[in-house]
C-alpha cells in the first residue's frame, strides 16, 4: 500500500468511526482480498478463510475506536486476521501438525489449465510446503515475503521483540527450503 492508499484509508476511518457504514464498506472492499489471501495461506481452507475474513472486518468495526493512526491500518487488520487464524488453528489442534493431504484450497487461479500448468505446479508445491511447516513459521514468512512487512511491523503484529523476528524468520526460511526438497543447513561457514 502506498501513501495515497493510507490517506484514503485514514479518511474512510474517520467517517466510519462516526458511524458511516458505507465508509467502512469502502475500507472492506480495499482490503478484503489481501486479508482473505493471508488467512487462506495461513489456514489452508477456503471456506474457513471466507468466514474468518468476514469476522476480521466485523471485529475491526467493533475495535475501530481503539485503532491509533501510529499503526498502519492494513497491518492492524493483518494482526486481527492473524489472531483469529491462530485461534482457528488451535481449535483444529493442528498448530504444530500441518495437514498432510495434498488437497489444499490454494492456487485456484483464473488462468487456464495449460497456461498455468507449470506456474500452478510451482505455486501448489510452495503452498503445500508452507502448510507442512509449523504455523508460527508460516505466519512470519507470509508477513515478510507476501505482505512485505518490516521487522518492526512483524514484531508488533506477532507481539514479539524485533530481535526475535530475525531469528524466527531465518529458521522459517530454512525449514521451508528443507520442505521444498533441499537438504539444507549444514554448517559450512
Amino acid at each position: 500500500m502506498d501513501d495515497a492508499d493510507t490517506e484514503r484509508d485514514n479518511a474512510s476511518i474517520v467517517r466510519a468511526r462516526a458511524g458511516d457504514t458505507r465508509a467502512f464498506g469502502e475500507i472492506v472492499r480495499r482490503h478484503q482480498d489481501r486479508v482473505f489471501s493471508f488467512i487462506l495461506r495461513l489456514t489452508g481452507t477456503r471456506d474457513e478463510a471466507m468466514d474468518l475474513t468476514q469476522e476480521v472486518f466485523m471485529k475491526a468495526w467493533q475495535a475501530l475506536p481503539e485503532w491509533r493512526s501510529e499503526a498502519r491500518f492494513s497491518t492492524w487488520l493483518l494482526q486481527i486476521a492473524r489472531n483469529l487464524s491462530i485461534d482457528l488453528l488451535r481449535r483444529r489442534q493442528v498448530i504444530q501438525f500441518a495437514p498432510l493431504d495434498d488437497e489444499l484450497d490454494i492456487a485456484d487461479t483464473a488462468m487456464g489449465p495449460e497456461a498455468c500448468y507449470a506456474t500452478c505446479q510451482r505455486d501448489a508445491q510452495l503452498a503445500r510446503a508452507l502448510q507442512r511447516i509449523p504455523a508460527g513459521q508460516r505466519e512470519i514468512l507470509l508477513l515478510r515475503e507476501v505482505e512485505d512487512l518490516t521487522y518492526t511491523d512483524i514484531a508488533r503484529t506477532l507481539g514479539i521483540r524485533p530481535g526475535t523476528v530475525k531469528s524466527r524468520l531465518a529458521r522459517a526460511r530454512a525449514a521451508l527450503l528443507e520442505r521444498l526438497g533441499r537438504k539444507a543447513g549444514e554448517d559450512h561457514g
Partner: peptide
Amino acid sequence: LRSRFQALPQERLGFDLGAVIE
C-alpha cells in the same frame, strides 16, 4: 524463495464483502 513468494497470485474472495458487511 523470495521471488517465488512474490510471484504467488493474490487469492480473490470473489464477492463484494463490503456490501455484506454494510
